[in-house]
């Protein structure tokens, strides 16, 4: 790399860093600032109180738990349904396979707001309102196609002979999936978890319509904090807390996210 190229990269990425980090800096600053008057404290002073309140308030604590529950369940569903499907698409031709792939793309591209109304009626019929299970299920509509695409590309990278050797060695089908295939595509599982997480943890439209009175995830708990006189410091403290699992997730997959995914059509 030439010196000019190096300097240009430093400048470009410094700009990028400022652009990306500025809103985060603002958020973190506000989360440590007292923004509503309280006894014995001055507005604008540096404080831990916002974070203390996040963990003291039962509704906020419950929302963290709800979000973690539905996201884990969603990831579990996407992996357990997506893995066999991805295997089928990676290893076999079958009648109608192209149609399946286009249908997956079509459902991934269907805007969630379109589905919100019937999903509410349908899930109300099955008692899935105010329940993390409902959100976990409905988020599969856009996460399962992505899970299948990512897993498919990782399975395709494993030579077919690997499967054949495993079966000759006398592995049963479930044994092959759990003991051989999953370890072989472990980074792919990580990337799948990451992408399912980033589309599910942050989703708002469906999460709102499915939680009317209870079971509210973090996003809705933050919305509920907005009122006539909003304690913006508390809102930002809650936002900072909501970022923690995501940042941990980025850290775990940092060496593998660059594998990305492509659509199969």
């Amino acid at each position: 790399m030439s010196l000019r190229g190096l300097i240009m990269r430093i400048v470009v990425f410094a700009f990028l860093g400022v652009f990306i980090l500025l809103p985060f800096v603002q958020t973190v600053l506000l989360s440590f600032t007292l923004t509503l008057p309280r006894d014995g404290y001055e507005v604008g002073s540096l404080t831990w109180l916002n974070f203390l309140e996040v963990f003291k308030r039962p509704d906020l604590r419950a929302s963290i738990f709800n979000s973690l529950t539905y996201v884990s369940l969603n990831i579990f569903l996407c992996l357990s349904a997506g893995l066999p499907a991805a295997y089928a698409i990676a290893r076999y031709r079958f009648s109608g396979d192209r149609h399946v792939l286009f249908a997956l793309l079509a459902f991934r591209l269907t805007p969630p707001v379109v589905l919100s109304l019937p999903v509410f009626f349908l899930f109300a019929h099955f008692g899935l309102i105010n329940n993390p299970v409902g959100i976990a299920l409905v988020h599969c509509a856009f996460n399962l196609p992505i899970a299948i695409w990512i897993l498919e590309s990782f399975i395709s990278a494993v030579p077919r002979e690997y499967d054949e050797t495993c079966f000759i060695d006398g592995q049963s089908t479930p044994g092959f999936f759990f003991k051989r295939l999953i370890p072989a595509i472990a980074p792919g599982i990580g990337v799948t978890v990451f992408f399912c997480f980033i589309f599910s943890w942050v989703e708002v439209v469906l999460a709102r319509i499915l939680t009317v009175t209870a079971g509210k995830p973090i996003t809705m708990a933050i919305n509920a904090l907005y009122r006539f006189q909003t304690d913006i410091g508390l809102v930002m403290a809650m936002t900072v807390v909501s970022l923690v699992p995501g940042v941990a997730m980025i850290w775990f997959v940092r060496n593998h996210i660059a594998r990305g995914f492509v659509i199969r059509t």
Binding site: W201, V204, G246, V247
Partner: peptide, 9 residues
Amino acid sequence: LPLVVPWNM
């Protein structure tokens, strides 16, 4: 990083 921020925030 911005990908893990809740959309309403």
